[in-house]
Amino acid sequence: MTERNDHDLGEQFRALRREDTTAAPAFRATLAAARARRAATPRRRALGLAAAALVLAGVAVALLLARRGVPIDLATVRLKTPTDFLLALPNEELLRTVPELGRVTITLDRRTP
C-alpha cells in the first residue's frame, strides 16, 4: 500500500519491527500467563462481589437504623383515594355546620339554570 517515496518511512518501521520481534515474549509463556490469569479471575471476581454485597448490606442496615428513630405520627396520615372526589357533594358544608339567622352560607352555582 505504501508508495515508492514512502520507502524511507517503511524502512524505519521495519527496523522497529525487527527490534520488537526480538524483544517479544514467547508465545507459550504469554499463553501460560493468560491461563494462570483466567484461573485467578473467578476468585478475584467472587471477592469483588462479596465486598460489594457487604457494602450494600452495610448501607441498608445504616438506613434502617437511621429510620428507626423517626416516629411516624398516624394522626397526620390520611389516605386519599383517587375516587374521593365522587363523594364530594355540592354545598356539603350545610351538612356539617349549624345555620345562623341572617347569614347566607349557600353559594349558588350561576351556571345551573
Binding site: P25, T30, A34, R38
Partner: peptide, 14 residues
C-alpha cells in the same frame, strides 16, 4: 502491552 495481549488471547480462546 503484555497484559493486553494476555487478556486478548483469553478472549479469543474462551
Amino acid at each position: 502491552a503484555e497484559d493486553a495481549l494476555q487478556a486478548s488471547y483469553l478472549k479469543v480462546l474462551d
